[in-house]
Structure formats: C-alpha cells, structure tokens
Design a protein around this nucleic acid. Structure first.
Lengths: 205, 205
DNA sequence: CCTGATCCTGACCGTTTGGTCAATATTCCG
DNA sequence: CGGAATATTGACCAAACGGTCAGGATCAGG
C-alpha cells in the first residue's frame, strides 16, 4: 500500500526520499523510535519538517519503510550460504560477513536491535514469516552438513543465534566494548580472529 | 548526592521507592527511557504521578537509580569467578549463571541493553571505571589460567564479550528467538546445552 | 511563455509529557 | 489528643511533538 506505484517517481522524489531515510536511519538508530523526532530526521536530511511529511505520511511509515527496506540487505549474507560449498568455509565466511556489517553498518544493526528489544511491533509478520523461513532453510543446510559428518553436530538454530549475538554485539554494544577495551584497540578486527577460532573449534568435525 | 542520607527512611518511603523502581523497571525495559512515561511508571507502581515525583526528583533520577542499583547485581556472577576453582568449571558456571539471569531477569537485561544501545549516557563513569576494572580483573584470572595451560589460549576480553552476547541475546532478542523457534520450544534450556558444548570445545586445553 | 502538477514552508493545532504547587490527608510521636 | 512531619493529590503549566493546511515557489511539458 505504501509502495503502490513505485514506477512513477520524480528525480526529486527519489532524492528526497533517500535523504529522509538516511536521516531517519541516523535518528532512529541513535535514539530508538520514540526517541527520534521528525524534526531530527528533517534536520539530518536537510529538509523542513512539513516537507518530510510530504514524502511520508507519518513517522511510523518512515520507520516501517526503513525496516522493510533494510531487512533485505540485513539477511542477505545468510541467504548466501552455499549448500555446495565447503561447510566450515561457508560458516566462517558468513561470520566474517556479519562482522563486516557490524563495522560498516552499525546504524542498521542498532535499528533492528531497538525494534526487536521493543518486541518487534513493526516486524511481527516478517519475523514469523520470511525471517523464520530463511533461518529454517539455513538451519537445514547446516543440519545436512552435520548429517554428512562434515560439521560437528550442534543445534543449527542456536548456532545461528550465537553468530548473530556475537557479531552484532560489536555494533549494538559498541559503547560498552569501547569502554572496556579502551580507545586504542580495534574491537572488530580482534573479534574476527576470536570468532574464527571459536567456531572452527566448535564445528570442525 | 541522590543517596545522601539513606539511613533515615520511613517504612512508607522504603516501600514506595521500591514500588516505583519496580514499576520503572517494567516501563523502561519495555519501551526504553524515552518511550516510558512517568504516568506509566506511576500506574505500574499503583501511585499517582505527582507522588512518584515526590520520591524521585525526575524521570532521569529514577532511571539512574535503577541502573546503578541493578548494575551491582548484574555484574555479581562475574565477580564470583574463583581463581582457586577449576578453570573450565568456573567459566561454565558463569555462563550458566548468566543464562539463568536472562531467564529470570529479562527486564534487567533489556534495561541495560537500551542504555548501552543509546551510548550509555547514564553509565559512562561506571563503564569506564568500575565495569572496566571488573572485566580486566576477570580477564586477568582467565589469562593466568591460560598461562598455566589449564585453559586454551584465547583473548580473555573477547571471551567475556562473547559470553555476554550469547547469554543476553536470549533476553534482549527474545521476540526474535521466539518467532524463529516457535512457541513450543524452550530457548534458554536449549541454549544451556549449546553454550556448554561451545565453550567446552573452545576452552578445553 | 503559459499552465498544471509537483514541491515546499510558515503558521498553526491538539495531544502528550515532564514537572510544579498549593492544598489536603495521613502518619508519627510526645 | 494535638500538632508537627510526612505523604498524597487535583489542577495546572510550559515545552515538545506529531501532524495539518492554505498558500506560495518551482519545475516539466506543450
């Protein structure tokens, strides 16, 4: 309903909608849905508040559009698990990809973190639908590798959870990580080595 | 300054402050700091809004009091790492304790999650001070065990981060875990087995 | 250059929210 | 009991916020 006719869109529309979503990503990821104001979003986008509402009917719609747009990108690495590939390499590549996303797209990570913390009011359909499907599919691939003895047997769903938890931790709880580690260290670079070691140990048959 | 004279406190004061903090924990952990309103807190506590402000000068002070009060309890399991104990048992016991806290105190977990997501504006001193100290101390214990060859060598800080990430994931992202796993499963009970396997593999020398 | 569609904004509105205050009720204690 | 200390509340306030709207600026196409 929000994207009924995406075909017809002016250059200006395209540009301003992008600006708004970009500003909204910054605002929502910094303060959560309720903490972010339309004024903040407008300022970050370089537009006036009424102009923002000219392109999006409500704050809610901006948020929803952001979530659904970014979810695609967010889950992409999991979809890339290649059933034909080498199991351990595939898993380690996935972990590396997720860590790089925490490094390069921390705002996106925090956006989802806020949403899920809140009980995912805007994502319930997606969570129980598309997400679950993708996770189940990936878990099935992992399970098959385990059946074949090419990966140690563990619960595939919890394996995925643990990878999410660990990799997103460095984006979501960055403030804590930095406070504990100090300013001079590079948390994510270090995490790469740690995570590889961890999951190699766990999964090597 | 907030707790200048804790000695003098009426029964009524004690009871109502507790009620308020209890209600605030529910409100803040469900909606974050900005998402929670004093009215919500008051209703949850069974008091009127002005009465809540009679016991706490501001919403901010309620939040700060909650955080500092609960941080103690939250970090307690880490303090319990016994340098004299069996290394692997100690770590596994810590993990089990953290998982039980995710099960029994999910509100506390989410309260901290929100705060740190936001950049920990109310915890900066604590993070860089007390927390860092405790983590460094624990990391030192773990490091010594590794020196002695009683634990496999990994980065102690990232080991702690990974335990936090995994165990708190089940409280903070409960909505997602439940959506993916379905209603009939018991995530945390399953996680216990998974986590023990994971860290036994990683750390057994 | 004209005109209709698109784009943009200042001013405004109703509601919510954090917080205040004067007045009243309740408790405590000599 | 009586009065001081403590506790409680309805009414209120100013600021912030999401959202509206009428009117003006700008742009695209003929």
């Amino acid at each position: 309903m929000t994207e009924a006719a995406p075909a017809a869109m002016t250059r200006i529309q395209q540009k301003n909608r992008d600006l708004i979503l970009e500003g909204a990503l910054t605002a929502f990821s910094a303060n959560g849905f309720r903490g972010a104001t339309i004024d903040q979003i407008a300022r970050a986008a370089g537009l006036s508040k009424p102009n923002v509402l000219y392109y999006f009917a409500s704050k809610d719609e901006i948020h929803k559009t952001l979530l659904t747009t970014l979810l695609e990108m967010w889950l992409d690495p999991l979809r890339r698990l290649d059933p034909q590939g080498d199991p351990l390499s595939e898993v380690l590549a996935y972990i590396r990809a997720k860590l790089m996303m925490s490094r390069d797209f921390p705002r996106e990570s925090r956006l989802f973190a806020y949403e899920i913390l809140q009980g995912a009011p805007h994502l319930t359909e997606v969570l129980g639908g598309g997400l679950r499907q993708i996770v189940d599919d990936s878990a099935a691939i992992l399970g098959r590798w385990m059946d074949e003895g090419r990966l140690r047997r563990v619960d595939p769903h919890h394996l995925i959870f643990s990878i999410w938890a660990l990799t997103q931790h460095y984006a979501d709880f960055d403030a804590q990580v930095r406070a504990v580690l100090g300013a001079s260290r590079d948390p994510i670079a270090e995490a790469e080595g740690f995570a590889e070691d961890l999951y190699r140990r766990l999964l090597a048959p």
